[in-house]
Structures are given as structure tokens and as C-alpha cells.
């Protein structure tokens, strides 16, 4: 049936060496049937626990949300549901707030992901040197990752205060006027991104570092013998070897950026779900939350959720396409 089966059944049995596992009886039909069953069904048993939990706590909510997105459901009167077809989706497409949230999600996503991964790459490069107290640097850079979104955002909100925050105090010291971090479009998006960057840069740096260390030394040696400079080595040896890792981090970061929620919510304080007075930092996650949990339009919130899901699938498809193209080019 499958390759593995063929191997197990068709391959001649090896002679047992020292009888380490006890003598094996001659192939008997019952045993071989057991063996076949094992081969055929074990994989399902392996994935079963995951899919069991996933079905109850993941798939059901997902499908229910899909169903709900085709209905008018209000959290204030959840007993009343009314079929509205694609109305919720049509309404989204014509809604300025939705597009605004989509735009913000994209810009904050770029603002947080690109510097984060670039800095991580640079840091990994530095960490790859022979360093004194190597472990200290690595652990120290990883600590922000241990901080919860809530705790981290709490601190950053204080630091970014307009009138009494430390950032503005420091900026005033170098002659830059106070920045209203929350009210400005760019300033607020930069502030929110900085929280994301702070939490994740060190973690990504370690992942890149691991990948760099897996690059065989002789590749560098060959390049060095060819007279390649350090920068050229980085471009022509390190980066290509890192490509799969970079791809992985890009995928994970993109998913994280699309779902960005806690940081802007808490950064906005009371009414944070709006993402500022002009929705200047409202992400899709916040828009969903606002629709569902503040305006109580559950059906519409579900439509936002499914739209996010579809957007991510689209990104994934494009990503896969690009990856394949890259592989072919190579």
C-alpha cells in the first residue's frame, strides 16, 4: 500500500545478532497481521489526540464562527439569529473602518516585523563570534520574551506618556519637542511596533544563531580560500543557508502580526479597542474585538475573523508560490 509497508513486509528479515532483544519467532500469520494493522493504523493513533482536541476546541469553534458569520447575531440577544447570507461580508467590504484596520495591520506588521528580523539577523551574526560570557548575552537578549504582553505594555505605556513619560523626557533633553505617542498615526504605530520588537527580537536572534551554527565550516573555508570578504561570505554563504529559517520566522511573524491584538489594546487604555480617537492604530484583531465585544455584533465579528483567516491563507499561498519559485531558481 505505501512505501513503508512494502519495506517492512517485503524486505527479508535480518539475521538476529546477539539475541539482544530475545529470539524472534518465525514469521507467524497472527503476528504479521498485527504488524500490518500496526503499520496501517498507528499513524492515525498518533495524530488522533491532536485532532480530537483540535476538533472539539478548534474546528468546532471555527465552523461555528463560519456559520455565525452568515447570520445576524447580537451578543445582547443571542437567542435571536437570523440568516443574512453574505451580508456581513458585503458590509465589511464597504466599511471604511475595516479597510483602515487592514491597512494598519499591514503597516504595523511591516514596522514591527522587518526591523525585528533584520536586527535579529544582525544580533545573531554578532552572537556567532567567539564571545566572552556568551551565555549571558544570549539569555539577556531572550528575557523580554519571558514578559507577558500585559506586563510589557503596562511599562511601555508609562514610558511613552505624553506629559510625564520617560521617552519624552529624554527627547526633551536632546531638544526634540514632546511627541504625543498615542494621538499621532505614525508615532502610535511606531510605539506599538516597538513593544512587539522588544519582545521578539532576541528570540528570533537565537533561532538565526542556531541556523548559522549549523552551516558547515568548510563552506566558509572554501569561500575564504576564494578570497571572499566577510561581507561577501555573509551574503553568499550565511544568507542562503539561512533561507529556510528566515522563511519560517517570516511565516510565524506574519501570522503574529496579522493577529496583533494585546499590545494595541492595552496601549490604547480605556477604549483601547478603537485603537485611538481616529482608529490610528486599530488592527484587524481590535476591530474584530470591537465589533464583537463592544458593539456586540457577533455575526459581524465572525465575518471579520473569517476574513482574517482568508487573508492569511492568501498570504500563505503567495508565500508558498514564492518559495517554490525560489527553489526552482536555485
Amino acid at each position: 500500500m505505501t512505501a513503508t509497508t512494502t519495506v517492512a513486509e517485503g524486505a527479508p528479515r535480518r539475521e538476529q545478532g546477539g539475541g539482544h532483544h530475545g529470539g524472534r519467532p518465525a514469521p507467524d500469520p497472527w503476528r504479521s497481521r498485527l504488524c500490518r494493522w500496526d503499520l496501517r493504523y498507528s499513524p492515525y493513533a498518533f495524530v488522533a489526540p491532536f485532532f480530537l482536541f483540535f476538533t472539539v476546541f478548534g474546528l468546532f469553534p471555527l465552523l461555528y464562527t463560519g456559520w455565525a458569520s452568515l447570520h445576524r447575531i447580537e451578543l445582547t440577544s443571542p437567542g435571536r439569529t437570523e440568516w443574512v447570507g453574505l451580508h456581513n461580508y458585503a458590509r465589511l467590504l464597504g466599511n471604511e473602518f475595516f479597510w483602515n484596520a487592514l491597512r494598519n495591520t499591514a503597516t504595523i506588521g511591516v514596522l514591527s516585523t522587518v526591523p525585528q528580523l533584520l536586527m535579529a539577523l544582525g544580533l545573531a551574526h554578532l552572537l556567532h563570534y567567539r564571545l566572552r560570557a556568551a551565555t549571558f548575552w544570549r539569555v539577556a537578549l531572550l528575557t523580554p520574551y519571558a514578559t507577558s504582553v500585559a506586563a510589557a505594555t503596562l511599562v511601555f505605556v508609562l514610558l511613552y506618556g505624553r506629559d510625564y513619560g520617560m521617552v519624552n523626557w529624554a527627547l526633551r533633553g536632546v531638544g526634540i519637542g514632546p511627541v504625543d505617542w498615542q494621538s499621532g498615526t505614525w508615532s502610535s504605530q511606531i510605539a506599538v511596533s516597538s513593544i512587539v520588537i522588544w519582545r521578539w527580537t532576541g528570540y528570533n536572534a537565537l533561532i538565526y544563531l542556531a541556523a548559522m551554527r549549523a552551516v558547515p565550516d568548510d563552506l566558509y573555508e572554501a569561500a575564504a580560500l576564494d578570497g571572499a570578504s566577510r561581507a561577501r561570505q555573509f551574503r553568499h554563504v550565511t544568507l542562503p543557508a539561512l533561507r529556510p529559517t528566515v522563511l519560517f520566522t517570516v511565516v510565524v511573524s506574519t501570522i503574529g502580526a496579522t493577529q496583533l491584538f494585546g499590545e494595541p489594546l492595552l496601549f490604547g487604555g480605556a477604549g483601547g479597542q478603537k485603537g485611538g480617537a481616529s482608529r490610528q492604530f486599530q488592527t484587524l484583531g481590535l476591530y474584530l474585538y470591537e465589533q464583537g465585544w463592544f458593539n456586540f455584533h457577533l455575526g459581524r465579528a465572525c465575518a471579520v475573523a473569517w476574513s482574517m483567516f482568508l487573508i492569511l491563507l492568501l498570504i500563505a499561498a503567495v508565500n508558498a508560490l514564492l518559495a517554490r519559485r525560489l527553489r526552482q531558481d536555485r
Partner: peptide
């Protein structure tokens, strides 16, 4: 913005 941190802080500073 009322009930936000800067509002609290403004009280302390008699703003």
C-alpha cells in the same frame, strides 16, 4: 483622557 495614567499624573502635578 479621564481615568488614564496621564490624567492621574496631572493631579499629582496640579496641572
Amino acid at each position: 483622557k479621564q481615568f488614564e495614567k496621564p490624567w492621574d499624573q496631572a493631579y499629582a502635578n496640579g496641572r
